[in-house]
Computed example of a mutant assay.
Amino acid sequence: MKTFTPKPADLTHDWYIVDATDVVLGRLATQVANLLRGKNKPTYAPHADSGNYVIVINAGKIALTGDKSGKELYAHSGRPGGLRRDTYAQLLQNKPERIITAAVKGMLPKNRLAAVQLKRLRVFAGAEHPHTPQKPQTFEIKQISQQAK
């Protein structure tokens, strides 16, 4: 059996929309990372860019389990003394997009292809997004948080 290698003409980039309301952060990040890499397609190859565009809405309504509200997310500006650390509780109120982006980035491979795939991720704190002309398909995550039930 020969190994299938997708040609550039075979690669399509579909649009998916994911609602993050009451979904656990880790479960959301794995599903979104799989969509970004294109693992849901039969033409998936780890070295080829067959990924999709993913829109995540309602990022502010995500569920954090355990003691993640006290966990800190670090960022550095590159300047001396530019280390910034914010707790997940602060970020959930001010900038929830950063929590999801960091979680998805951690689930992607550490190579140049992951940087290209991460650019296809669009995260919005509310329910509105400007990508309606692309006609995204709804991708539903069936497992929601136990606290939300």
Rank of each mutant, 00 (worst) to 15 (best):
G51K: 00
I100L: 03
I100M: 04
R79A: 07
A114W: 01
R122W: 10
K68L: 14
G78H: 05
R98W: 12
I55T: 03
L83T: 15
T101C: 08
A75H: 07
R79K: 14
N94I: 14
R122P: 04
N94D: 15
I55F: 08
R84V: 14
Q93M: 14
K95V: 14
V56D: 04
R120E: 04
E97S: 11
G82S: 10
I99W: 02
Y88P: 09
K61T: 11
L121V: 06
V123C: 09
D67F: 07
Q117M: 03
A48Y: 13
H47C: 10
L108R: 00
A63F: 02
H76Y: 09
L108H: 02
R120D: 02
A75S: 10
T101E: 12
R84T: 15
T101P: 03
V54Q: 01
L64H: 00
G70P: 02
L83N: 12
K68W: 02
V54R: 00
G60S: 04
L83E: 13
K71W: 07
Y74K: 08
R85V: 15
K110L: 11
Q93K: 13
M107C: 07
K95N: 15
N58P: 02
V56I: 11
L108F: 03
A48V: 11
E72R: 09
N94R: 11
G81R: 13
T65D: 11
R120L: 02
I57F: 05
F124G: 06
Y53P: 00
G106P: 00
P96M: 07
D67A: 09
A115Q: 04
I99N: 01
K110R: 08
I100E: 01
R84H: 14
G66S: 04
I100A: 02
G51V: 00
L92W: 00
I55D: 05
T87K: 09
I62K: 01
L121F: 09
R122F: 13
S50C: 13
V123Q: 05
K68I: 10
L113G: 01
D67G: 10
P109F: 06
R85W: 09
T65P: 01
V104D: 01
T87P: 13
V123S: 09
R120K: 06
K95F: 12
R122K: 14
E72Y: 08
A114F: 02
K105Y: 05
Q90V: 14
I100F: 03
S50P: 03
L83D: 15
E97V: 08
D86A: 14
M107V: 08
L91K: 02
L108K: 00
P46E: 11
P96F: 05
N58V: 06
E72N: 12
R122H: 15
R79S: 09
Y88R: 04
T65Q: 05
E97Q: 11
R84Q: 15
